[in-house]
Amino acid sequence: MKGRIRRAQGADWAICRALVPEACGRTDCPIEGLILHPESGPRVGGAAVLRFDGHDAWLGLRVVPPVRRQGLGSYVFEAAVEAARAGGARRMVTAYDTLAEPGAQPFLEKHGFEAVTRITTFEANFPATAQILGRMRDELVARHRVPAGWVITTLARAPLEAVAQLFAAYVAQREDLAEAPLRLDREAGRWDRSPVILENGRPVGALITEKLGNVWKVEGRFVVRGYQSGVANAILLGAAVDLGMAHQASHFRFESRDDNRDTLKLARRMNARPLRVRTRFELALY
Rank of each mutant, 00 (worst) to 15 (best):
M1N: 01
K2S: 04
Q9F: 12
A14H: 10
A14Y: 00
C16E: 03
A18P: 12
T27H: 03
D28N: 12
C29G: 00
G33I: 09
P38F: 01
G41A: 13
P42D: 06
P42H: 11
V49A: 09
V49I: 10
R51S: 09
R51P: 00
H55P: 07
W58R: 13
L59K: 06
G60E: 07
G60F: 04
P66A: 06
R68W: 11
R69E: 11
G73D: 06
Y75I: 08
A79H: 02
A84H: 02
A84V: 00
G87N: 03
G88M: 04
T94Q: 00
T94E: 08
A95E: 11
D97I: 00
L99T: 07
G103T: 04
A104F: 13
Q105P: 05
E109R: 10
E114M: 14
E114Q: 14
A115H: 06
R118M: 15
T120Y: 11
A124C: 15
A124E: 08
A124Y: 08
P127D: 08
A128G: 11
A128L: 14
I132C: 01
M136D: 14
A142H: 14
I152C: 11
L155M: 07
R157A: 13
E161A: 07
A162N: 07
V163S: 01
Q165F: 06
L166K: 05
A168M: 07
Y170A: 07
Y170G: 05
R174L: 11
A178W: 04
A178R: 06
E179I: 00
G189L: 14
W191V: 09
D192H: 14
S194D: 10
V196I: 14
I197C: 07
E199R: 05
G201Y: 08
R202Y: 12
V204Y: 00
A206K: 09
I208G: 10
E210C: 05
E219P: 07
Q228M: 15
D242V: 10
G244E: 01
M245H: 09
R253A: 07
F254G: 02
S256T: 01
D259S: 06
N260A: 12
R268P: 06
R268G: 14
R269G: 13
N271C: 15
R278P: 02
F281G: 04
E282L: 15
L283S: 09
L283V: 10
Y286D: 08
